[in-house]
Amino acid sequence: MTLCINGADYPMPNDPRTTLLDHMREKLNLTGTKKGCDHGQCGACTVLVDGKRVLSCLQLAQTVRGDVTTIEGLSKNDTLHPMQAAFLEHDAYQCGFCTPGQIMSAVACVSEGHAGSDAEIADWMSGNLCRCAAYPQIRAAIASVAQAEAEG
């Protein structure tokens, strides 16, 4: 059994207790995904599985069914993903610790069609805490990406 992360195959952990988050951070050196609480209460560990946003701290690695995308897999070579570029442009981060989770969640928020208005973005991004409270800038970044996508 293997785990597909960012297009590459990795071995499954032997220990069934290993979460996807711990496996990536401790064994695969994929430390971009952060551990903010380890109990599904902050969103810092958000990754995509088959395009859906999930919390890697509550996902046992051996039960993952689908392809995982993390912050490290978002940009292609040196080109930032539009959401990463928008976060940079809108200063949508401060300490940066929640940022990988925010960006992964934001990518899903747009693809789900939940970025239609400021209020809708606020609602559908409420699973990602940001204690620096860069919230308005995060909303602006997501709105800009959603708008650019809408304009094709």
Partner: peptide, 9 residues
């Protein structure tokens, strides 16, 4: 309920 991520899971 919970958060969008938890509701996906």
């Amino acid at each position: 309920a919970a958060s969008p991520q938890i509701r996906e899971m």
